[in-house]
Design a protein around this nucleic acid. Structure first.
Lengths: 182, 182
DNA sequence: GTCATGTATCTTAGAACTGAGAAGATCATG
DNA sequence: CATGATCTTCTCAGTTCTAAGATACATGAC
């Protein structure tokens, strides 16, 4: 976590990427591009702000955000191949090995062989892991609800629609680039 | 970056936190909370997806995202105290020392004494640093505009308003918690 | 069969941080 | 001016993760 969490009340203050009036440099982009830059900034800051809440909550159970994401995925989806978990929580292949190792050491997760493919392994919750996630998930959920409660239910629905489209669009664009560039 | 970027076309696929139909467990939260959880998931995924574009772009100049954020802040705001930069780009106090050291080693940034407070140091762009950021910023800006172009200009404005309020609200809530808890 | 290619996980080195605390400077107060 | 509280940066050990390659298995063409 970032230290000096309050200092002078300007932590996480509004972005104002400096492109606007009062900048040390003249305007360099048109208004439309400026709005896109602002979107990128507020998107990152909102995510960081909510993430700080979630991380603090999860940390009280002795878990990192990423560890919790794995437990939650296994809880709600059942056992999954390591590669599936990896793509779902967006870490590298080395990262998923590292994380599952750590959860195994904590006794929360176990590896299981895959009968149809001897390269692959399942990750599955142990009884301890299932008990832990079942115990903390409800509080976790209401904690998130509180963290985003600045938006009304209707506004949250609008935000979900826009963000889902934004995310999907960015992923699709990245795939296009890969296909054209490679 | 995460490897296996395409594999089976389901990377970054839609979240569906597993709380809905077909889950291995019964519904555990009400619809309102489920929508908040979904907001948290799509927020994180959208941020990650756009961030991947930005990081790839910036990496072509031999910079990390965080290094670029520092250069951009100094470019648009002029020299800043290390603590100001730290709060602006959201890293730890150790992190800002580390990052500025690295930018100094690259010849892009220099430290300057603060005449009114001998504890403090300014970070300022060197001519090389200024030339670099001036050269890459326009392309960077249009690259971001492209990454978020799935949303129309009007939708981007709506998203900015909602995300700004969401971020501010979450930060305010965190401060409340600190004041009550400490 | 066997060869080439692709896939799934693991290993390793090291990059990019965080967190705790030290050291020095400043500020507020009596 | 003391004295203590608070900043500001820096140090350093440790954590979390990435990238690249290794290993082992699978799959399809021949």
């Amino acid at each position: 976590m970032i230290d000096q969490p309050e200092s002078n009340g300007t932590t996480l203050r509004d972005a104002e990427p400096g492109i606007l009036a009062g900048s040390a440099h003249p305007l360099e982009v048109d208004a439309r591009t400026a709005e896109s830059l602002k979107l990128w900034v507020v998107l990152s800051r909102a995510q960081a702000a909510v993430s700080a809440h979630v991380a603090a909550d999860v940390q009280r159970s002795g878990l990192t955000l990423t560890e919790f994401a794995i437990l939650e995925a296994l809880y709600h989806r059942g056992a999954m191949l390591l590669g599936e978990v990896q793509r779902r929580i967006l870490v590298s292949s080395g990262g998923i090995t590292f994380l599952v190792d750590r959860l195994v050491a904590k006794g929360l997760v176990e590896r299981q062989e895959c009968p149809s493919d001897r390269r692959a392994r399942y990750a599955a919750l142990t009884p301890d892991g299932e008990a832990l996630i079942a115990r903390i998930f409800p509080g976790h959920a209401s904690m998130i609800a509180r963290a985003v409660s600045t938006l009304s239910a209707e506004e949250q629905q609008v935000a979900v629609k826009l963000l889902r489209r934004l995310g999907r669009g960015a992923v699709a664009l990245a795939r296009e680039d890969v296909n054209e560039g490679g």
